Amino acid sequence: MDIAVQWVRVYWTKNSRGGPGAVRRSALPEAFPLPEAEPPILHEVQMLERDDFSPTMTVTTGLPPRTQAELTETGDGHLHVLPVRDAPEWANNGLDLAWRPEPVTMRPRQTLRWQINHRFTTERGWYYRLDTLNVSYGHPTAEVFLHPPTHRVDERSHL
């Protein structure tokens, strides 16, 4: 499987929800260069408000578990991609939970950027998360996700 997956997850509280905090947060990158590794590769990036949104990264060989994303290669040379809404039931993303976009069908040398956001309630208040799933199918380069994607799905809602 010649697939590279990059999860970019941003976490913040109400402190970064409006004004200067929101401006800083919305300037954060949606994608990062891929580290040098043989596909399949899973590159995970987290940016936390409490760490001033400094990225922390992990790299593993293989694909994300099916509990996070369904990536299915077909016999005719296509890849079907559908992220799993992995937020717990008590999280709110403002979307109709019964409706989901169809999986994206990718051909070799295509890329996908899929975004969805969540609001979580805890005993200390609300916090928010933006998930960006970047997928490259076929011969990923280090800068593959730094270019506009072939496919884009935006499931973000106003929280």
Rank of each mutant, 00 (worst) to 15 (best):
residue 124 R to G: 07
residue 63 L to W: 07
residue 118 H to R: 08
residue 17 R to K: 13
residue 140 P to W: 03
residue 126 W to F: 15
residue 34 L to Q: 08
residue 105 T to Y: 04
residue 94 G to C: 07
residue 116 I to A: 07
residue 24 R to Q: 13
residue 98 A to L: 09
residue 10 V to Y: 02
residue 54 S to P: 11
residue 113 R to L: 05
residue 24 R to A: 02
residue 30 E to A: 00
residue 70 E to C: 14
residue 81 V to R: 08
residue 157 S to E: 12
residue 156 R to A: 03
residue 10 V to T: 10
residue 134 N to G: 03
residue 149 P to G: 06
residue 6 Q to T: 04
residue 31 A to V: 03
residue 46 Q to N: 10
residue 130 L to S: 05
residue 73 E to G: 13
residue 70 E to G: 12
residue 84 V to H: 13
residue 50 R to E: 12
residue 60 T to W: 14
residue 76 D to V: 01
residue 110 Q to V: 04
residue 147 H to T: 09
residue 135 V to H: 08
residue 147 H to S: 06
residue 75 G to H: 11
residue 26 S to W: 06
residue 101 P to D: 07
residue 112 L to W: 01
residue 85 R to H: 15
residue 80 H to G: 10
residue 124 R to F: 14
residue 151 H to A: 14
residue 49 E to K: 00
residue 39 P to A: 13
residue 89 E to R: 12
residue 39 P to K: 12
residue 60 T to Q: 13
residue 62 G to F: 09
residue 6 Q to A: 00
residue 117 N to R: 12
residue 77 G to N: 09
residue 56 T to F: 01
residue 127 Y to G: 06
residue 96 D to V: 02
residue 77 G to Y: 15
residue 81 V to G: 09
residue 55 P to R: 02
residue 51 D to M: 12
residue 74 T to F: 10
residue 71 L to N: 00
residue 151 H to T: 10
residue 21 G to N: 07
